[in-house]
């Protein structure tokens, strides 16, 4: 290929979009023409999920449960209205169930079918949550999965795996880290990570591997 040809190609000032981008644009334009979707509403949805919805909402729920025993009781008995008390809810969180970690039981959430996830409290799921290895192994080898996430639990802690579906979506209420008695609700919320509410992590401040305790 001669230099002139390359030069000409360089001066072709068209835009480039990938085939998948073109396909999605095609769907959007066809659906908008037929009145199924409103492009402005689509943009608003994207902005909402890119900037507002995320695990900070779930962290507020956890911090409230850590500081208010009556709230914790409501959250564990009927999560959806308890979460709504903090003005959190909506699509993907119509029927929420919160499961509590204790020294005896650690909870782990997965969607074995596809990628069901409690959007209002955690935002949209991370890539690994939707991938076959996590979906398959969370059920058959939860302890091995936790180890990959750097979480080692005492042998005596039982691991319970919860399978989220379109109808029921689970969130984990992690254990409150030690020595946080003086923490404000806001400071507590800052300790709560996304993974801690999926069960693949622990809140900041709890060592992932329990230290040797003197007998």
């Amino acid at each position: 290929m001669g230099h002139d040809h390359a030069h000409d190609a360089h001066h072709h000032h068209g835009s480039e979009i990938s085939p998948v981008e073109a396909r999605v644009r095609a769907l959007e334009s066809l659906l908008a023409e037929k009145g199924y979707v409103d492009p402005a509403a689509l943009d608003a949805l994207v902005e909402l999920y890119e900037t507002k919805v995320g695990p900070h909402a779930g962290a507020r729920v956890v911090a409230r449960a850590w500081t208010d025993p009556a709230y914790r009781a409501r959250l564990l008995s009927d999560a959806t209205p308890a979460i709504a008390e903090l003005d959190i809810g909506g699509r993907g969180g119509e029927h929420m169930v919160v499961v509590e970690n204790t020294p005896e039981t650690h909870n782990l959430v997965v969607c074995t079918l596809c990628s069901c996830y409690p959007w209002p409290v955690l935002g949209l799921p991370p890539v690994w949550y939707k991938a076959p290895p996590y979906r398959a192994r969370a059920v058959i080898d939860p302890r091995g999965v936790l180890a990959e996430f750097g979480v080692t639990l005492p042998e005596t802690t039982r691991i319970t795996v919860w399978d989220s579906t379109a109808e029921t979506r689970y969130m984990v209420l992690p254990m409150r880290p030690a020595e946080t008695a003086s923490f404000s609700e806001e400071a507590l919320a800052a300790l709560v990570t996304r993974d801690a509410m999926i069960g693949t992590g622990l809140p900041r401040g709890i060592p992932a591997t329990p230290a040797e305790m003197p007998v």
């Binding site: 990938s18 998948v20 981008e21 769907l27 994207v46 949209l124």
Partner: peptide, 15 residues
Amino acid sequence: FAAPWEAQVFALVVS
């Protein structure tokens, strides 16, 4: 979202 098209697909499905 890793790319704008992912966001658009998500928004289409939700809508």
